[in-house]
Simulated scan of single mutants.
Amino acid sequence: MQEWFATPPGRYLLAWEQAQFDQAVADVFGYHALQLGAAQVEGLRANRMPHRWLALDDPAHLAHAPQAVLLTDFAALPFAANSLDLVVLPHALELSPDPHATLREVERVLVPEGRVVICGLNPTSLWGMRQRRAHLYRRLGFGELFLPEGGEFIGYWRMRDWLRLLSFEVESGRFGVYRPSARSEAWLERSRWMDVAGERWWPIFGAAYFLVAVKRVRGMRLLSPEWRRASARATAPVPIAGKVHRQGRRADGE
C-alpha cells in the first residue's frame, strides 16, 4: 500500500486512520509498544510509552519508513511472551500471507490486559464492491484495481470472531470513510457530506473499520491499589490483653 497511500483516496483513508489511532492510543499506558506494517500510518505517534518500535516484513518498504525499524517476520516476532503492552496493526493482517499466525503471535507477546488496535478495509463497502468488480474485469482482460492488489480483505465481523477465539475482548469498534470510490481529489471533496450521512444512515458500510481489543486471561484478577492496604491490615500486630493501653487504661480493664 506504500504508493497507493499517495493517491487522493489513499490520502483520504490515511487521514481518517491517523485520527483514529491518535485517539485510541493516547491513553494506553505501559512501557513497550509495537506497530506492525504500514509505515505511512504513525500508529504510535500519540502514545507516551518510553519504548516504541515499528516493524516491517519486507525490505522494499524500508525506504518509506520515517525512523529506524525492525525487519522481521510478523508470525515470529523477536519479543518474549507477555512483554508488550500495546500492538497496533494498520492493515498488517489483511496484507499478511498468514493472518491467523500473525494474530496468534500478537496474542503471545501481549501482556494480560494488553491492547491490540487493528484497522482494515471493509469488503462490504462501495470501495470493496469496486475492487471485486475490478478483479472480474481483469480476468476478462481489461480494467484496473482501485485498491492495492496484495492481500485479502478481512470482514469486520470475521475479525471479531478471530479475536474472540484468541480470548480477546473487543473494547470498541467503528466504521469510517464513506465517500465513493473516486480517484479524483475534486470528486472526493464534493462528496464530503457522505462522511456525516454515512455514519448516521449506513454505518456498517464504511470503506474502513477500526477495532480496539483487550487480551483477557482466564482465572487472572488484577490487583488494585487497595491490596496494599488490605495486606497491611492482615499483617498488622494483634494487641495482647494486658499489654496494650487504650485511653490510659490497660486492655484487661486495669
Rank of each mutant, 00 (worst) to 15 (best):
L86E: 02
R45T: 10
P66T: 09
E171Q: 10
L62M: 13
F142E: 05
L14C: 10
V116T: 11
Y156N: 01
H61N: 07
E42D: 09
P78F: 11
W187M: 09
E169K: 13
H245E: 08
E169A: 14
V25H: 00
T72M: 12
P97L: 09
T7E: 02
F5S: 01
V170P: 05
R158M: 10
V196D: 08
P50K: 14
R246I: 05
R160E: 03
D58Q: 09
Q67E: 14
F21G: 01
V109H: 15
G155F: 07
G151W: 02
M194I: 06
A213Q: 03
L89E: 11
R233N: 09
L56G: 04
A251F: 13
L110M: 02
P239G: 08
P8K: 03
R190D: 10
T7G: 01
A234I: 04
R108M: 02
A76I: 06
R45S: 12
P99A: 12
T7S: 07
I240D: 06
H64K: 13
D252E: 06
R115I: 13
L89Y: 12
P8V: 05
Y178I: 02
R229A: 15
A39Y: 03
R132N: 01
H135I: 12
A55K: 06
G206K: 02
S125Q: 00
R130D: 02
I204S: 14
K243A: 06
A208P: 00
D58T: 06
L70C: 04
A75K: 11
Y156F: 15
I118A: 05
S191D: 12
W157Q: 08
E113F: 15
M220N: 06
A232P: 00
E189D: 09
L188A: 04
R115S: 11
R104A: 13
L165S: 15
D58H: 08
S172D: 08
A60G: 09
Q131M: 02
E185G: 11
A24F: 07
W187A: 12
R138D: 08
A26D: 05
W53K: 13
D58R: 11
F5M: 05
R132V: 04
V196F: 15
M220A: 06
T72N: 09
H91G: 13
A101Y: 07
S181N: 14
A19Y: 07
P123E: 04
V217M: 13
L163F: 08
A55H: 11
R138H: 12
W193L: 03
M129R: 14
R246H: 15
S181Q: 09
L140S: 04
G219E: 05
P66F: 15
L89V: 09
W202P: 10
V212P: 00
L36V: 11
G141A: 03
G173Y: 12
W4E: 01
V41C: 03
R228E: 05
E152N: 12
L62P: 02
V212H: 04
L140K: 14
L14K: 14
P239L: 07
Y12F: 11
H51K: 14
L62Q: 15
R246E: 09
E152R: 15
